[in-house]
């Protein structure tokens, strides 16, 4: 009884605050989804009604088939997948290398990563455009994947260093004594141990590549090569635009992102505390 009284007001405030916060956080997602299923007449006639009277797939059909979003979905998947595979591979090697062979570099590395994090992408994109033109990679998915390494690799290395740190060096030494070489130790012993960490890093890289906008906008110009985010943005200029189709298109971008995010949301917390502060 006494205890209840004591924790009363602050707990009540917490619940109220969090409930309001949760509603504000979730409302746009719900509104996006219900709008995607409304016919345009219904949307304009009754702007504040929440649920659609008649659920319709019309908006999705328009987006996918009339506006050829299937092509952009394919592009986004290809670019994001290749980015994930290559960046994760490079970063695993680097993170392990830093932990085992360059332990003193750890702190310097954190500084370098923070420094590169400061580079505005709008600054980087100009030299990228110039180099891409020279190499003939403008308007290609290969070019885009290459450029995506610039933000994927530093971040993935940072995340992975935190995970590789947890592998006890004793296990590796035991395997070395048994005659395994460095590469075998890495592939057969270390990698399986940090697999959960690698998976969440890979998912994070995928989400970021899937969501990327600026480079895709400026380095890829033809609509059959461009990614989803840019395609949604160009929808705005289309004559047949109605907000229902726009929300259907946005739903196609947002749902995979939220799905993958939920898979790794436990891993994201605290990563900052372990990885960055010493």
């Amino acid at each position: 009884m006494k205890k209840l009284k004591k924790i009363g007001p602050s707990t009540v405030f917490s619940y109220v605050f969090l409930t309001v916060l949760a509603i504000v956080c979730v409302f746009p997602l719900l509104w996006l989804l219900v709008s995607a299923f409304k016919s345009s007449n219904e949307m304009l006639a009754n702007p504040t009604a929440f649920l659609p009277k008649d659920w319709t797939w019309e908006n999705f059909k328009t987006v996918l088939f009339t506006l050829k979003f299937t092509v952009n979905i394919k592009n986004s998947v290809i670019v994001a997948l290749w980015t994930t595979v290559i960046a994760t591979f490079i970063s695993c090697l680097a993170a392990y290398g830093i932990i085992r062979f360059f332990p003193k570099l750890g702190n310097i590395m954190t500084r370098i990563l923070i420094t590169t994090y400061m580079f505005p992408s709008i600054m980087l994109v100009i030299p990228y455009a110039v180099v891409m033109k020279t190499l003939g990679l403008t308007n290609t998915r290969v070019g885009l994947v290459l450029v995506y390494m610039s933000f994927s690799v530093p971040y993935a290395v940072w995340m992975l260093v935190g995970f590789f740190k947890t592998v006890p060096i004793g296990i590796e030494e035991a395997a070395r004594i048994d005659g395994a070489n460095r590469l075998m130790v890495f592939t057969k012993i270390v990698l399986p141990l940090v697999r959960p960490g690698i998976v969440s890093t890979a998912i994070y890289v995928f989400i970021n590549a899937w969501n990327e906008f600026l480079y895709a906008l400026l380095l890829v110009s033809s609509s059959d090569k461009t990614t989803l985010s840019v395609a949604v943005k160009t929808l705005e200029g289309a004559d047949i635009l109605n907000w229902g189709s726009m929300m259907a298109a946005s739903a196609i971008v947002v749902l995979p992102s939220i799905f993958f995010f939920c898979l790794i949301q436990n891993k994201l917390a605290g990563g900052l505390a372990d990885g960055a502060v010493k």
Partner: peptide, 10 residues
């Protein structure tokens, strides 16, 4: 988890 484009459009 919202991509920038979805944030903007919604």
């Amino acid at each position: 988890a919202f991509p920038a484009i979805a944030t903007a459009m919604v």
